[in-house]
């Protein structure tokens, strides 16, 4: 996805602009303004920190390839993964509006980031209300996803809970990909799924086995892929309204 060394820097931002266009209208001029912002490329290994709780953010990183997660930790060391970010996602729009990072942000897989200076982003947004609106919409959709996760963890049983998460991830990745991602491999280990869904790893393993038996997922060694998305959707009782996947158009 972002690994082609012959891609120009502007081309690399294509996935980010596609992400914004999936929920907001931006003129060609707005899109060009984003594409011509200066940024540096940064590569990180799994679990490397992008942002730490308490940090004062000066940059605005965007995920070009790979997956990242937000996590918070309780005093006794329990870790809760509170958000998953996929290629194309901006990782810290929040810090454009509030100063201090309230959570940790880490690479889940090897990632490639486009790192913008916050002040460049602020200067970009000031005269361009459509981009400012797109940023707010992006933040609101993350809030909507958080609410769905709260319902998921608080009220769905393990089977529905896991199925719902996998369904969401599949639809989010499919939305941003240019081709069919049927064989998309879920990037989370059983331990990470446990920390995200509030279950034990043993329970996650049992639940994967049930989904596998139903044909909803396939497992090759430790890698998990989609089996039948309709079955997964039925088990999860999934509706994508909360993802607000409304637009795919230009003005």
């Amino acid at each position: 996805m972002g690994d082609d060394p012959f891609k120009s820097k502007e081309d690399r931002l294509g996935i980010f602009i596609r992400k914004l266009l999936s929920h907001s209208r931006l003129s060609t001029d707005d899109q060009q303004a984003i594409a011509s912002l200066p940024f540096s490329l940064r590569r990180l290994e799994p679990n490397e920190y992008i942002l730490r709780e308490g940090d004062l953010a000066k940059v605005c990183p965007v995920l070009l390839s790979g997956f990242a997660y937000r996590q918070k930790t309780s005093a006794d060391g329990g870790r809760q993964i509170v958000a998953l970010k996929i290629p194309g996602d901006a990782l810290d729009f929040q810090s454009l509006y509030v100063d201090i990072a309230d959570h940790n942000l880490q690479a889940l897989t090897p990632v490639e980031l486009a790192v913008f200076a916050q002040k460049d982003f602020e200067a970009l947004v000031a005269p361009r209300p459509n981009i400012a609106r797109a940023i707010i919409v992006d933040i609101l959709i993350e809030g909507s996803i958080s609410r769905e996760w709260l319902l998921n963890i608080g009220r769905r049983n393990a089977l529905g809970r896991l199925a719902h998460l996998l369904c969401e991830l599949y639809y989010r990745v499919q939305q941003i990909a240019l081709e069919e991602v049927g064989a998309f491999e879920f990037p989370l280990t059983q331990e990470q799924l446990a920390d995200l869904l509030g279950l034990t790893p043993v329970h996650i393993n049992r639940t994967i086995k049930i989904l596998e038996k139903e044909g909803a997922v396939k497992r090759v060694s430790r890698r998990l892929t989609i089996g039948d998305v309709d079955t997964l959707r039925r088990i999860a009782d999934f509706s994508d309204v909360y993802l607000h996947r409304t637009l795919d158009s230009l003005v």
């Binding site: 393990a158 089977l159 790893p201 043993v202 329970h203 393993n205 049992r206």
Partner: peptide, 30 residues
């Protein structure tokens, strides 16, 4: 239901705790 995969845990005590958490999770679900 036979667990063929298994899980790595620090020691017997950690395995016991995991079993209790697992049991609570299963019953909470169903």
């Amino acid at each position: 239901e036979i667990d063929e995969q298994g899980h790595e845990l620090a020691d017997d005590l950690a395995a016991r705790r995991e079993a209790v958490h697992y049991c609570c999770g299963l019953l909470g679900d169903d």
